[in-house]
Nucleic acid binder design. Structure first.
Lengths: 147, 147
DNA sequence: TTGAATTTGATAATGATTATCAATATTTGG
DNA sequence: CCAAATATTGATAATCATTATCAAATTCAA
């Protein structure tokens, strides 16, 4: 069981700063979100939360994920399909994605040289850098074996 | 006026190979698509095509863009908003995008070193590489000046 | 505790895209 | 060139993820 004291504190701080309330539902959804490491969609998280509290509404999960993102706890990513997925942002350094187009599995990677080359591109063009995303789509070793 | 003989030939070849028909609508939509260099959405292209032929249907534009993509003429890209945009693929080498989050303008760039580092990441992880996308979001020089 | 402000859950609405289907157009073998 | 076979079109309904709406319930701050 992962500890998520830091996320809890961040959430409380964010809520207080923005005159938002701390609620049972938001707490539960955060706990569920922190309980898995995978990239999770709102729908999947809704299914998980519902097991713990069948009365929870789907819209509440969407709203909670938006709050988590604004609080810096979650990071939305859009990969292969058309649904947004969320990953942990705390103690989870920036990374890019290697996505298997066959089985959908995701490997995270980080390459300092790619990062600095990106910054160089921004500088050369006079852009300030805000964020970036690099997704590589291919076939993972396991799926290649099967083919 | 850009010449698009190559695209026309590619389309005809693709249609023939797949037992598809060459139609007035597909020709018109291709012509309109080739007439602009920007990243265009189905809706924008629909508006353009409709000016030339008011009877054209929206679904036909979506279908044509799918055919163009399969024929290797167009390339779908998903940038900031949630609509898919299409860019020219012929005589338009692979590139990545620098997107201004303020005005939405797009600069294309290409860095051979980034490309080869990506290939290295794939090799290291045993992935075959299929395609990739790298989008950098920031603020362009013009918008920075205004701030 | 209480009342003002926020949140919730259910449901309707949205917006881009895809599916359906009858009517029309294109192809192709003769 | 013609006619049957096949593919395409346009209109419209359906999808699907997400957002908006709103009355009822909850939370907070004094």
């Amino acid at each position: 069981m992962k500890d998520y004291a830091k996320e809890n504190r961040l959430l409380l701080d964010y809520l207080k700063k923005n005159n938002l309330n701390s609620t049972r539902q938001r707490d539960l959804i955060l706990k569920e979100f922190m309980s898995i490491e995978d990239h999770v969609s709102a729908e999947e998280l809704f299914a998980m939360a519902r097991k713990k509290d069948p009365s929870i509404g789907q819209a509440t999960v969407f709203r909670a994920l938006k709050v988590f993102s604004e609080a810096g706890i979650a990071e939305p990513v859009e990969l292969s399909d058309k649904t947004v997925r969320y990953e942990h942002k705390i103690d989870h350094k920036h990374h890019d994605h290697l996505v298997c187009v066959s089985c959908g599995s995701i490997v995270e990677f980080f390459d300092e040289r790619i990062e600095s080359l990106q910054k160089a591109v921004c500088n050369k063009n006079g852009y300030s850098i805000n964020r970036h995303r690099l997704d590589i789509f291919g076939v993972c070793p396991e799926c290649r074996k099967k083919e």
